[in-house]
Computed example of a mutant assay.
Amino acid sequence: MERRNFLRASVLGASTVAFSGSLWRGTAFAAPAQNATGPYGPLQAADANGIQLPAGFTSQVIARSGQAVPGTSYTWHNAPDGGACFADGSGWIYVSNSEINPNGGASALRFNSSGTVTSAYRILSGTRTNCAGGKTPWNTWLSCEEVDRGFVYETYPFGGTAVQRPAMGRFKHEAAAADPVRQVVYLTEDETNGRFYRFIPTTWGDLSSGTLQVLVAGSATSGSFTWANVPDPDGSPTATRSQVSGSKSFNGGEGCHYADDTVWFTTKGDNRVWQVNLANSTYELAYDDSLVSPGTPPLTGVDNVTGSTYGDLYVAEDGGNMEICLITPDDKISPFLRITGQGSSEITGPAFNPAGNRLYFSSQRGTSGSSSGGITYCVTGPFRT
């Protein structure tokens, strides 16, 4: 396996990308990640919310599907999925998709500086199966439809009418990640033979027009890659994933996260986390459950992913044993939390608040196993920064 530098994750500010501390960890490590004790120690017994956490961390229920968000009159949506946080003065906003069809869309929760919800509201309505998405540097949320020839919708957590962005391609969208250095947006596709794309806007900050490209590479799990234009981003009559000879197939593209010349994305079909090294146009595995030793792979059903200011990756499970697992910069993997008693659900939407001391996420179907049983949580504690 190639050697690589795992770069420190970036902190997305209110309107720009700011870097926290040194950009380089300074040491090359081997990938993919292997089992190890986590940086926060072992999981403790489940708390009152049924969540096992390391010592020093606490959980809180923020909202429940079908119920008014505490402190507001807004009814939280069903099947909460992908999410992100946005700085809002001394507080922040957490946005969350609704993975139902029809009438999916997305909602937002506004928090004050103490982490109390001050308002809740809709930012997207009338769409289908809004699964994951991504935050832009200009403080919009890209909500992605996980349906055949689905759209990306640009939404406005701070106010404004959502806009459909067909130039970003019509396919079974999953997640998006903005790269302000190359001024592109990366996109995953949730198909067993999905592709990994990037969209190059004609003007950075305006997603109304641009060029959709697909990653071209061999069949190996590491190597070099190039980009090729997708001739027909509309995907009809030929699906976008079938238009470019030599484009690389990925088994069920899911979450996507960018930081410091690197983009990571997950594939649920083969329980992998892929690392794309943009500075030298190479790719490799950051995690593969079939290559973990010693012991049992901790991460299965890989799904949404986010990063901390320290450079740790947090990967949520759809399946497995309802964990969020942590991959450290030195390629060690361990469970960070586990939700008990919700085996018919999945963990979605992990995102840190701007200070990096609160992690938001949802159990999409909660204890009921139904989309109407979703629960959105916050974990607070001594996250390393």
Score class of each variant (00 low, 15 high):
residue 325 C to Y: 06
residue 313 L to Y: 06
residue 169 G to H: 03
residue 227 W to V: 10
residue 145 E to L: 09
residue 229 N to S: 15
residue 4 R to D: 00
residue 289 D to H: 12
residue 119 S to R: 03
residue 259 A to C: 13
residue 244 V to L: 08
residue 382 P to C: 01
residue 213 Q to A: 02
residue 67 Q to L: 14
residue 312 D to K: 08
residue 323 E to R: 10
residue 63 A to N: 01
residue 46 A to P: 04
residue 237 P to A: 11
residue 59 S to L: 03
residue 290 S to H: 15
residue 164 Q to L: 07
residue 109 L to P: 06
residue 38 G to Y: 02
residue 42 P to H: 09
residue 265 F to V: 06
residue 302 V to W: 00
residue 323 E to Q: 15
residue 317 E to Q: 13
residue 101 N to Y: 10
residue 154 E to L: 12
residue 145 E to K: 02
residue 85 C to A: 06
residue 346 E to V: 06
residue 45 A to R: 09
residue 7 L to Y: 11
residue 158 F to I: 07
residue 364 Q to H: 03
residue 57 F to E: 04
residue 257 H to Q: 15
residue 327 I to M: 05
residue 199 F to I: 07
residue 28 A to F: 07
residue 353 N to C: 10
residue 385 T to K: 06
residue 334 S to N: 00
residue 270 D to R: 00
residue 366 G to E: 10
residue 13 G to Y: 00
residue 74 Y to S: 02
residue 93 I to Q: 01
residue 309 T to K: 05
residue 308 S to Y: 01
residue 273 V to E: 12
residue 110 R to T: 07
residue 131 C to S: 01
residue 287 Y to A: 13
residue 202 T to N: 15
residue 324 I to H: 05
residue 202 T to P: 13
residue 360 Y to N: 11
residue 28 A to G: 13
residue 349 G to S: 10
residue 192 T to F: 14
residue 307 G to M: 00
residue 221 T to L: 05
residue 176 A to I: 07
residue 132 A to D: 09
residue 230 V to W: 05
residue 225 F to D: 04
residue 277 N to R: 15
residue 116 T to Y: 08
residue 87 A to F: 10
residue 301 G to E: 13
residue 358 R to H: 01
residue 162 A to I: 12
residue 3 R to I: 14
residue 344 S to T: 14
residue 247 S to G: 09
residue 38 G to E: 04
residue 225 F to E: 11
residue 16 T to Y: 08
residue 22 S to L: 09
residue 367 T to P: 05
residue 324 I to T: 07
residue 45 A to N: 12
residue 224 S to H: 14
residue 288 D to G: 04
residue 200 I to D: 05
residue 39 P to H: 11
residue 327 I to Y: 11
residue 378 C to I: 12
residue 191 E to R: 09
residue 109 L to Q: 09
residue 157 P to K: 08
